[in-house]
């Protein structure tokens, strides 16, 4: 009895925090999404589906996000996989931990400052100046979808490398020896042994990156120059500029629903692959 009481006392502060700062706010968003907009901006209680019916007016933001986010995810995977493979299979074990830490560290530093660095690099006096100097004419890099994509891949690469690395590292190396002993050339043993066994890590990485990309605001805002509009940019606009809270809430609920569908799809895939979902340690 005493033990149960102490357990509840230990849980109480965190429980209260999660209730007031997470559950309650998310409930508010759902309630607001069925409300109406006050003329001066703000919210009037109501029960209407008008906000959801109005979603197509922000169709471009949804379309941009739903095309650029998967594209960015795939691009990040293509760049991350060989690096994860190198770290798990080829790198000197003495250096492996350090190399891994070097991948993780940027993820924890300010994405704001790191995106700013790309403004600097892709801006008129950066890379384009170098290209012009080399005699390839003038190109415009900043405020283009290309710049946004560069920022996205740059920002989310660590999140993709890690899960792929974990699944490759855990792979039973004796399987590869067996494949070699049976005369499989390296490419074949990669395609038939390594790749299939690393798919759970690939799925985890893709899910993580895709979900976080769905809510991205900073990278398109800073590198897209207001031309490449994501759902996140629409949300900032609706809440902080036009103060249309009810419609903004409907956009936010839709965004979370898309993410829930993604996660469910991922869980279903994992169960079919028979992989165990393991928590990827980000530290």
């Amino acid at each position: 009895m005493q033990r149960r009481l102490s357990t509840w006392l230990l849980l109480a502060p965190a429980g209260l925090w999660f209730a007031v700062m997470l559950v309650l706010p998310l409930c508010f968003v759902v309630v607001f999404s069925f409300g109406e907009r006050e003329a001066a901006g703000g919210y009037v209680p109501a029960f209407t589906l008008a906000q959801y019916a109005n979603l197509p007016s922000r169709g471009t933001a949804f379309l941009n996000t739903l095309t650029l986010a998967p594209f960015g995810t795939v691009l990040a995977l293509l760049i991350a996989y060989p690096l994860a493979y190198f770290l798990a299979m080829r790198a000197d074990p003495k250096w492996r931990t350090l190399l891994l830490i070097l991948v993780i560290v940027p993820f924890w530093t300010s994405i704001l400052i790191r995106s700013y660095a790309w403004i600097f690099i892709l801006g008129g006096q950066g890379l384009p100046a170098v290209i012009a100097w080399l005699g390839f004419g003038s190109v415009r890099l900043i405020n283009t979808p290309f710049a946004v994509m560069t920022g996205i891949v740059y920002g989310y690469l660590p999140l993709m490398v890690l899960p792929v690395y974990v699944s490759l590292e855990r792979l039973d190396k004796r399987l590869l020896e067996a494949a070699a002993d049976l005369g499989a050339p390296p490419l074949r043993s990669f395609l038939q042994v390594t790749l299939p066994l690393s798919l759970p890590g690939v799925a985890t990485g893709c899910m993580l990156v895709f979900i976080l990309l769905m809510g991205e605001f900073l990278i398109p805002a800073m590198l897209g120059g207001g031309k490449v509009f994501f759902i996140g940019n629409a949300l900032v606009d609706l809440f902080l500029q036009s103060r249309n809270w009810a419609f903004g809430a409907a956009v936010a609920v839709t965004l979370v629903l898309i993410m829930l569908v993604t996660v469910s799809l991922y869980m279903w895939l994992m169960r079919r692959m028979g992989g165990v979902r393991d928590d990827v340690a980000l530290m």
Partner: peptide, 23 residues
């Protein structure tokens, strides 16, 4: 709850907190 707190994008957490606290 822990999963939701980590996975829901910061932008949604920010919006939700804003409208809940202001109300």
């Amino acid at each position: 709850l822990i999963y939701v707190a980590v996975m829901v994008p910061g932008i949604v957490i920010g919006i939700a907190t804003l409208i809940a606290l202001v109300t």
